[in-house]
Simulated assay, not measured.
Amino acid sequence: MDLARRITDFTHDTVARSDYLPPLRAQRRTAAEAVGLFLDGRRTEAGRRLDGIDFGISTFTDTVTGRRFAEISDRAAEGHRGWGRIYIDLSATTRWSVQVPHPVADSGSEQLGIGVLRARRGGVLVMAGAHRNADRKGRADVAHRRDTVFDAVCDELAARHLPGLQVHGFADSTEPGYDVIASLGSADKGLPTARRTATALRHEGFAVCRAWARRCALEGRGNVQGREAEDQGVPFLHMEFSRTVRDDASRVRRAAEAMAASLPS
């Protein structure tokens, strides 16, 4: 199975049309605890916990990398609840996460997430399951809500001290002259990683606005996953990419490889 095709089909066929049903606190906790159990190697127990919220675990081999991945996803109401998916690289010990909070809304951001997951072993990809505007009350905007499955899983990963990389997209007119806005959100533990990442991207020909060195738009200071990472003392990067970059498959690949190579292990 092609990992990229699997995720792209999910975003096009499900995320773009999904409703959003806010999860109960117990459901969020169950999802996060099950991911933790899975990462601890207690996969049968994780599966039983996920059964309680009608989620399931499947595994497959990515035809491009030849590596095994696990997919944790909604079995019954994926297009109704919009709680998202988690992909785990099974070829190595889990050491970091890449997060895609706004698939479809930030067109092409899922391709950046896929690229990072493929480019370096030991990753977890956490993806939202609905458009950020799927709920009229704003409850589907997972980058700014603490009451989502997405946030609960990211909290579990931060509690395990796994560095987080969150990818977004911006309109070219938002920050003219830049391809990338790199920031730490509200955190400060990731500054060495951020500097390495910005340097790697510049070497690939990207113009990077570095929010720790100057004022940039969309610095992500209200990002709740970044705030949790700060509380846990875990490196966190908030990366915004222009529409021009996200529309260019070659530049997406180069950006993903540069970010993956810069992640701490």
Score class of each variant (00 low, 15 high):
3 L>G: 03
3 L>T: 08
4 A>I: 02
7 I>H: 09
7 I>S: 03
17 R>E: 12
18 S>D: 06
20 Y>P: 02
20 Y>M: 03
23 P>Y: 06
30 T>I: 14
32 A>N: 05
37 L>W: 11
37 L>F: 09
39 L>Q: 06
41 G>M: 08
44 T>C: 00
48 R>F: 10
52 G>C: 01
60 F>S: 11
61 T>S: 13
62 D>E: 09
66 G>D: 11
70 A>E: 09
70 A>L: 10
73 S>H: 14
74 D>F: 08
74 D>A: 13
75 R>G: 04
78 E>N: 11
79 G>T: 13
82 G>F: 07
82 G>W: 09
85 R>T: 12
88 I>L: 14
89 D>I: 08
89 D>C: 09
94 T>L: 04
95 R>C: 04
96 W>D: 00
99 Q>H: 05
100 V>L: 10
103 P>I: 08
104 V>K: 06
104 V>N: 09
104 V>R: 12
105 A>L: 01
107 S>T: 13
110 E>A: 01
112 L>P: 00
113 G>E: 06
119 A>N: 08
121 R>H: 10
123 G>M: 10
125 L>T: 03
127 M>I: 15
131 H>A: 07
131 H>R: 15
134 A>V: 09
134 A>W: 12
144 H>D: 05
150 F>E: 05
154 C>H: 02
170 F>L: 12
174 T>P: 00
180 V>D: 03
184 L>I: 05
184 L>F: 04
185 G>W: 04
186 S>V: 10
188 D>I: 01
198 A>L: 00
200 A>L: 02
201 L>I: 06
203 H>G: 13
203 H>V: 04
206 F>D: 09
207 A>S: 14
209 C>Y: 12
214 R>I: 07
215 R>K: 15
216 C>L: 08
216 C>W: 06
222 G>S: 13
223 N>P: 10
223 N>Q: 08
225 Q>P: 01
232 Q>R: 15
236 F>E: 02
243 R>W: 02
243 R>E: 14
244 T>Q: 13
245 V>F: 05
248 D>Y: 11
248 D>N: 15
248 D>G: 05
249 A>Y: 02
250 S>E: 14
254 R>N: 04
259 M>Y: 00
262 S>V: 01
263 L>F: 01
263 L>C: 01
264 P>S: 05
264 P>L: 04
265 S>D: 13
